[in-house]
Amino acid sequence: MITLGHYLVVSGMLFALGLAGVIARRNIIIVYMCLEMMLSAANLALVGFSRFHLVNGLPDYTAQSLVFFTITVAAAEVAVGLAIIVALFRSKQSVDVESVTKLQG
């Protein structure tokens, strides 16, 4: 029997994988992919809570509306972020996170 707990564990593990990628990887595009993975993991937790928190016998659609907004924001964020990465690549000729040290004190 699959409970909400199972979904939450999958969501948490996916988020943890994304976090490990963001911290450990040096390729800025892959760091960005891992960020997307973390956003999706949060969406999974939201949809899980939505399904099992019944309102009048139906899933809680407020949570799914929030997921809709999250996906929209994530799509906009990917577009802007990738444009920034392209601009960065133009000036540094590299996508390594350690090549960007201008803000380092």
Binding site: M1, I2, T3, L4, G5, L8, V9, S11, G12, M13, F15, A16, L17, L19, A20, G21, V22, I23, A24, F49, F52, H53
Partner: peptide, 25 residues
């Protein structure tokens, strides 16, 4: 990175069993 991820995963596993809602299927 691996240390933080394992810590977070463990915490999620421990917390997710504690609520009443988590047992629902």
């Amino acid at each position: 990175g691996v240390f933080l991820a394992v810590l977070l995963a463990l915490q999620v596993v421990m917390v997710s069993g504690g609520t009443d809602l988590a047992g629902k299927s």
